[in-house]
Amino acid sequence: MNWKKVAIAAGVGALAGYVVKEQLSNNQGVTPEKALKIAKEAFKKQGPISGSWIYMRPEELNKNGINYDVYRGGISKQQDGQTSQFEFYIDTDTGTIVDVAETTA
C-alpha cells in the first residue's frame, strides 16, 4: 500500500511542476528579437525601412510619470531621398511601442 501512495504523490508533484513551468514560460514577456520585429512591422506600414537595431538589455524609461521596462532600438528609413532615423522604446512585458522620436545625425 505504501508504494501506491508514493507513486500517486510523485505523479501529482510532477504534474504540478509541469503546470508551474508552463505558466512561467508563458509569462516571460517580449524578447528583444520580438520587440524589433514589432517595431519593424509598425514602421513598414509607412514605407520601406533600410536598417534597424535594438539593445538586448532592458532599460527603464519614465514616460508621463509612469516607469516602464523597455527595449530601446532604432529604425532607418529613406524619405524624399534622405535617410531618416527613428529611436523607439518597446515595453518588455506587453510589446507595446511606448515612444518614438526622430533622431538627428
Rank of each mutant, 00 (worst) to 15 (best):
Q79A: 09
S50A: 06
S50F: 08
G95E: 02
F88A: 09
Q79W: 01
E33D: 13
K40R: 07
G74D: 03
T94S: 15
N62K: 10
Q78V: 01
D80E: 08
N67P: 05
I49W: 02
T94M: 01
E87N: 11
Q82Y: 09
T103S: 06
A39F: 01
S25R: 00
G65I: 14
E59G: 08
A7W: 08
G81K: 03
E41Y: 04
Y71K: 05
Q85W: 10
L61R: 09
M1N: 11
Y71A: 06
E22D: 04
V19E: 04
G73V: 04
R72E: 05
Q78I: 07
P48F: 08
E22C: 01
G73Q: 00
K37G: 12
S52D: 09
Q79V: 15
Q85M: 11
G51T: 10
N67L: 12
I75R: 07
D93P: 03
Y89W: 13
F86R: 02
K37M: 15
V20P: 07
I54V: 14
G73D: 02
G51E: 11
L24R: 02
K63W: 15
G95F: 10
Y71M: 08
T83M: 11
I8R: 04
K37Y: 14
P32S: 09
S84G: 01
I8Y: 09
E59F: 12
K40M: 14
S50R: 04
D99G: 11
V19Q: 07
L36V: 12
K21Y: 15
K21P: 02
A10C: 08
E41K: 09
T31E: 12
Y68H: 10
N64T: 13
T92N: 00
T92S: 02
R57E: 14
N2A: 10
G17S: 10
D91A: 12
V6Q: 02
S84Y: 03
P58G: 05
L24Y: 06
P48W: 03
Q78P: 04
G73I: 05
T103F: 05
D80S: 09
G74R: 00
P48S: 14
S84T: 07
T96K: 09
I66L: 14
Y55P: 02
Q82W: 07
K45D: 04
I54C: 02
D99M: 15
G17T: 11
E87K: 09
A9Q: 05
M1L: 12
A14D: 01
S76Y: 05
K63D: 14
I54T: 07
T104R: 13
A10W: 01
G74V: 00
S84E: 04
E22Y: 06
S50I: 14
T103L: 09
N67R: 06
Q46N: 09
